[in-house]
Amino acid sequence: MTHDEFVAGIRERYSDLFDPANSDEDWRYLITIGPGWWPLVEEYCERAQAMLRDHGEVGLWFVRQIKEKFGGVRIYVRPATERLNVDWYPQAVHDIDPTPVQELLSDLRSQIVERANTTCEECGDVGGLRVINGWYRTCCEKHFEEWQRRKGSI
């Protein structure tokens, strides 16, 4: 499966989790991780969508981005602007009291991030954080060796 096919599947199956105002261009950058972490993202989306449905909060929380940063997965979730009743929400996000759903989403995100920290982003095998010349990746031994060869480190 290609990255575009994976993202299209997530977009279709978990549409409740993503802002319907996202353009096709937005979707190009919304999920930018390697295939080894795709099952973790799929699990996150499945569990988060069920959580929102169970608590009657569908459309009130949206995944804004899922990406790799410093070798770890980052999942950014924000309230919908309707929840805050403002046109521009970033400055107001910190002004709302945490809701039970917000705490549940945060706990779920922490679980997924923790598992990604020991999962190769490339293949999904057991891995760990590796560093070459200030670049960070979570990968297995095989993909670390490939990365070293590409970087000219060995």
Score class of each variant (00 low, 15 high):
residue 2 T to P: 08
residue 3 H to G: 04
residue 4 D to V: 11
residue 6 F to L: 12
residue 6 F to K: 09
residue 8 A to W: 14
residue 10 I to T: 12
residue 11 R to K: 14
residue 12 E to S: 14
residue 13 R to F: 03
residue 13 R to I: 03
residue 15 S to W: 03
residue 18 F to A: 09
residue 19 D to L: 10
residue 20 P to W: 10
residue 21 A to Q: 04
residue 23 S to Q: 03
residue 23 S to W: 00
residue 23 S to F: 06
residue 23 S to V: 01
residue 24 D to W: 03
residue 27 W to K: 07
residue 27 W to C: 12
residue 29 Y to G: 13
residue 31 I to Q: 04
residue 32 T to R: 08
residue 33 I to H: 01
residue 33 I to R: 02
residue 33 I to D: 00
residue 34 G to H: 03
residue 35 P to T: 00
residue 35 P to Y: 02
residue 40 L to A: 12
residue 41 V to Q: 03
residue 45 C to G: 04
residue 45 C to D: 06
residue 45 C to W: 04
residue 46 E to N: 12
residue 46 E to V: 07
residue 47 R to E: 13
residue 48 A to Q: 07
residue 49 Q to A: 11
residue 51 M to D: 13
residue 51 M to P: 06
residue 52 L to S: 02
residue 53 R to W: 07
residue 54 D to T: 00
residue 54 D to K: 15
residue 56 G to K: 02
residue 56 G to M: 14
residue 58 V to M: 06
residue 63 V to W: 02
residue 64 R to H: 08
residue 65 Q to S: 13
residue 65 Q to W: 03
residue 66 I to A: 08
residue 67 K to G: 08
residue 69 K to E: 05
residue 72 G to E: 07
residue 73 V to I: 15
residue 73 V to A: 13
residue 73 V to P: 00
residue 74 R to I: 04
residue 76 Y to R: 15
residue 79 P to W: 08
residue 79 P to N: 12
residue 81 T to Y: 14
residue 81 T to N: 14
residue 82 E to R: 12
residue 82 E to K: 11
residue 82 E to H: 11
residue 83 R to D: 09
residue 84 L to S: 10
residue 84 L to P: 05
residue 86 V to C: 13
residue 90 P to Q: 07
residue 91 Q to V: 15
residue 93 V to E: 15
residue 96 I to L: 11
residue 97 D to A: 14
residue 98 P to A: 15
residue 98 P to N: 03
residue 100 P to I: 12
residue 103 E to F: 13
residue 107 D to L: 06
residue 111 Q to I: 07
residue 111 Q to K: 01
residue 112 I to D: 02
residue 118 T to P: 11
residue 120 C to F: 06
residue 120 C to K: 07
residue 121 E to D: 06
residue 122 E to C: 02
residue 124 G to D: 01
residue 125 D to M: 11
residue 126 V to F: 11
residue 126 V to Y: 05
residue 129 L to D: 02
residue 129 L to S: 10
residue 131 V to H: 01
residue 132 I to E: 08
residue 133 N to Y: 11
residue 134 G to S: 06
residue 137 R to S: 01
residue 140 C to R: 03
residue 142 K to Q: 06
residue 144 F to Y: 15
residue 147 W to R: 01
residue 150 R to S: 12
residue 152 G to H: 12
residue 152 G to T: 10
residue 153 S to W: 05
